[in-house]
């Protein structure tokens, strides 16, 4: 069942077409990733979904209540966490009798107990983001919409936040936007990708991964390198493209692979067996922007 349905939404800002006939849907009980490079129109679309912005054309159908965590967390810096959540609960017209228990439950769920009595302005960015998520969950919405929730967090906080989102999936449908493919790859079931306001693809993650994200890119540094090895490897592993650069006395090569599975161990084995002097090899994670670069270049 679709809880969110976007039908040919167009949004025109003065002098800019932010969204162009965008259509997609979000299934109930899934974590749906909404991807696009910066400026693709993600925030505009999410603002339209929650009703902060009206579409120029088209319509959205939302069944159920929405909790929204905007790109910039809506926090009162001079309020204590507990008071802030109470204020939010009140303006969301919650029954007085259940406000206290609900806040305690959410504080628990978002691991905010140690900072409950502290001023929001003095909290770290990670905690602020969690307070903002708590705000979005306060009235127990059916759908939670998160706009780039992990931007600017340190790696540990990102992992904690990601686990927090995963823990919500049993109760809520989650739609969240990001510009990092790896980020959504870890937690999403479905994906929608947009670019310059136009829908690129929408559907189950596995299907989309095959189209965009599956190409492995390897950075390898070698001491010995010649064109024979290059041709040999090309035949063995089937590269899509290879960039070779000479750095000091190393050769650094960048390989774009076609295959879907991880071939790092085979390549390493090959390079060692042929005495190429393998110094380092690492996998480059493709940011969505790189993927788009790939698409537009190819």
């Amino acid at each position: 069942m679709d809880v969110i349905k976007v039908n040919a939404v167009t949004k025109i800002w003065p002098g800019l077409k932010a969204l162009d006939k965008l259509s997609f849907s979000v299934k109930k009980g899934t974590i749906h990733g909404f991807l696009g490079p910066n400026g693709a129109g993600k925030s505009t679309m999410l603002n339209i979904l929650v009703g902060l912005t009206n579409p120029s054309e088209g319509s959205v159908e939302v069944s159920g209540t929405i909790g929204f965590l905007p790109e910039n967390p809506p926090l009162y810096e001079n309020m204590v966490v507990d008071d802030y959540l109470k204020f939010v609960a009140q303006i969301f017209k919650m029954e007085k009798s259940i406000i206290r228990t609900q806040i305690d439950e959410i504080i628990n769920q978002c691991s905010l107990i140690p900072v409950k009595k502290r001023l929001i302005g003095n909290l770290s960015k990670g905690f602020k983001q969690r307070v903002a998520l708590a705000q979005a969950m306060i009235n127990n919405p059916d759908i939670i919409i998160l706009d780039e929730p992990t931007v600017g967090l340190d790696p540990n906080s990102v992992i904690e936040f990601r686990n927090l989102i995963l823990s919500l999936r049993c109760k809520h449908t989650i739609l969240f936007s990001s510009h990092q493919l790896t980020e959504v790859d870890k937690i999403c079931d479905d994906l929608t990708i947009i670019h310059k306001g136009i829908l690129i693809e929408s559907g189950p993650k596995e299907k989309i991964k095959k189209m965009f994200g599956s190409k492995q890119v390897l950075n390898i540094e070698l001491l010995n390198w010649n064109t024979n090895t290059q041709n040999d490897m090309s035949n063995l592993f089937g590269f899509e493209r290879m960039e070779v650069a000479l750095k000091n006395n190393h050769t650094s090569i960048k390989i774009y692979l076609n295959s879907l599975q991880d071939v790092r161990s085979q390549i390493a084995k090959y390079l060692v067996e042929n005495n190429c002097g393998l110094v380092s090899m690492n996998e480059e994670r493709l940011d969505l922007e790189d993927v788009f670069k790939e698409i537009t270049q190819g």
Binding site: G51, L52, P70, P74, Y76, E77, F92, K93
Partner: peptide, 13 residues
Amino acid sequence: KNHTLELLLLSKL
């Protein structure tokens, strides 16, 4: 400035 206007506009107020 604090983007809390969005919170108010989205609330039941």
